[in-house]
Amino acid sequence: MQNMPWWALILALLGLFLLFQILNNEDYHRAFVFLLAGIRLTVIITLTAYVVAATIGLIAGLGRVSDHLIPYTISTLYVELIRGVPMLVQLIYVAFVVVPMGISAINGLGGWILHVPALAGTLHGPAQWMVERSIRNVDMTTRGIIGLAIGYGAYEAEVYRAGIQSIEKGQMEAARSLGMNYFQAMRYIILPQAIRRVLPPLGNDFIAMLKDSSLLSALAVRELTQLGKLNRASTFRTFETWNTVTFLYLTMTVLLSMLVKLLERRLAID
């Protein structure tokens, strides 16, 4: 009796109950249908931001283990900056400060190219395009994705760093003693071994990001949480709306964490 996963059973029963409601209760059903588009956007946002974050993380993680001062300093600064700021503030900051500043920089660069005769001839098209960029070209969904990716990139960097540092020193030395350069040793020897060790934490961060994507509702991005707010406002069905939203998030995260556990077990066997 002690070993039974009672919590899982209760969770499953609650899920079944809500599923039953969605199928049979009109308020639940309407909420569910309305929220479907939000699930779609939540998944798209998470997938896109995650791919970018994993890439940024790999690059910054390599910087964190580098012996060279410049990549080490830049990536460490990035990681420390991000980790000290709440995710919600990061999202707002990226959406309303970083992106507009980026657009101004692109405008400025384009204008500069047009003023340099040597460049203006060959690069006229791209420079013109850069000058014409406006903040209106970047919608809130994109800004939110950029914000999530920058924020999570810092956490992924630490995951990769830990993974790389967990590989015995002798591996790098053996690779180098064969004449491989640092990058070849990383690519063929260190990273393939490190990746297996970081897959579970990377998977867990994917789940964390799926949950944090709800913060994009603060930017009025029409993802699952935002649609929940809208549904509540138009139907006044508070209880039904948030039950359904919660049910949908839980379904996604529970399924995903089962997947991660499976992956963990697979990797442990090899």
Partner: peptide, 10 residues
Amino acid sequence: VFQQFNLFPH
């Protein structure tokens, strides 16, 4: 050649 072999396990 190293004391601990340092073969590539993967």
